[in-house]
Design a protein around this nucleic acid. Structure first.
Lengths: 216, 216
DNA sequence: AGCAACTTGCTGACCGGTCATTAAGTAGGC
DNA sequence: GCCTACTTAATGACCGGTCAGCAAGTTGCT
């Protein structure tokens, strides 16, 4: 009654794939439940392994948390930096806004952002990483585009870092609001594209010089 | 060796004050630790009572959570509605921005906002309450002021609800960023007043009609 | 006034359940 | 046949919630 010789084995050894699979599962469960409520057992099940296996690859639940978030975040910034190639700075900033908005609108990102925000105070080192490697880089990218536009006279004179904060802030906040339908009844019934366009129009109207307003 | 007759008693009966004291302590501990990590015993200690007492006034930890947040939130909206009395709509929106920003900048509000955002998914009913009674009312207040300004020709024509979302969004997002020093290195070294003014200037430049730009 | 007799706010030890973590055992695959 | 990826199940810490008892305060009686 033991395993039949030619039956598929109950499990396979896949030492190279396991870590990433566990990280993905972890991020999903964490983003749904938060750090404290998430159960290692659920993460293991989701990843298709048993609880013990998780501890083969990660030291502790907290370690797993840190790694899973870091693992995902890193890709975002690179994507963004690639999404706004050189060119007309007004067009660039529009592409930047579109790309960022579209990216944050992936269903999972609302939860991840909430997750990060919620658990950050417990991870001082991680907060710094996030500030420098994520917000810092995104803001700087936006600021760079604005600077360019100001120099070319396409935008009105404005401190590029301030403008960048406003741009990123509006996008992020809208992503949060739309991530939880009931959280903000007033945005709920609009389409993603509509909201993206509203944000873009509003930002441009604050950035373009009075003369060219509405010309873009 | 028992209690000396005129020694202060170990505790006093203060049935009317207890609930509010427990609510305050709870909000503080919850905002520091989050719902899951917060220990009822710590809340009790903070409130100067024993754990059992907490359960005299509240059914469960979750009940306590709900009540403590609701208790605090309710006051915010009323404050705001009082802070922007009728008058010139440009001045009104400025007062609204100032009042909201100043209010969110009380040290605790960053944590509370994070707390709400983080724990909301677990409390569907509460999410609805928040959406309708908090974001809803604040947005509507802002929208009303913008509408007035558009009608008077002081603002450029713009959907007031959209404008209101932008206004509130920028303020809230900046409040989140500044609530955790390292979270956003690029805002950290500016004073509250500076940031408030930057937000105000940016918003006005998006709202004022091209002709009057810079006239305000 | 003084002093039981009583009510009730409050305490703190305790119980039970829920996981994170670990140790011991099993089976894939070279 | 052996290494090691993986599973299984034991261990123990931790904490929400309960409750029996204690003491602060109050009332009524003399």
């Amino acid at each position: 009654m033991k395993s039949l010789p030619d039956a598929a084995p109950r499990w396979r050894r896949r030492p190279t794939e396991r870590p990433q699979e566990i990280l993905d599962a972890a991020l999903q469960v964490f983003s749904e439940q938060g750090l404290a409520r998430a159960r290692v057992e659920d993460i293991a099940t989701q990843a298709g392994v048993s609880k013990g296996t998780v501890y083969l690859y990660f030291d502790s639940k907290e370690d797993l948390f840190r790694e899973s978030v870091r693992n995902r975040i890193a890709r975002t910034v690179e994507m963004l930096e690639a999404a706004a190639p050189p060119g007309n700075s007004v067009a660039r900033i529009q592409r930047f806004i579109d790309a960022y908005w579209q990216h944050l609108r992936q269903p999972m990102f609302g939860s991840i952002y909430r997750l990060i925000l919620a658990e950050l105070p417990q991870f001082p080192g991680f907060t710094q990483f996030y500030g420098e490697e994520v917000s810092g880089r995104v803001i700087e990218l936006a600021a760079h585009i604005v600077q360019e536009g100001v120099d070319e006279g396409r935008f009105r004179p404005i401190d590029p870092m301030v403008a960048a904060r406003m741009i990123v802030g509006l996008i992020v906040q809208h992503a949060i609001w739309t991530s939880q339908p009931r959280l903000f009844p007033r945005v709920g019934n609009r389409s993603d594209a509509d909201i993206g366009n509203e944000i873009k129009a509003f930002l441009l109207s604050a950035l373009l010089p009075p003369a060219t307003k509405g010309t873009a």
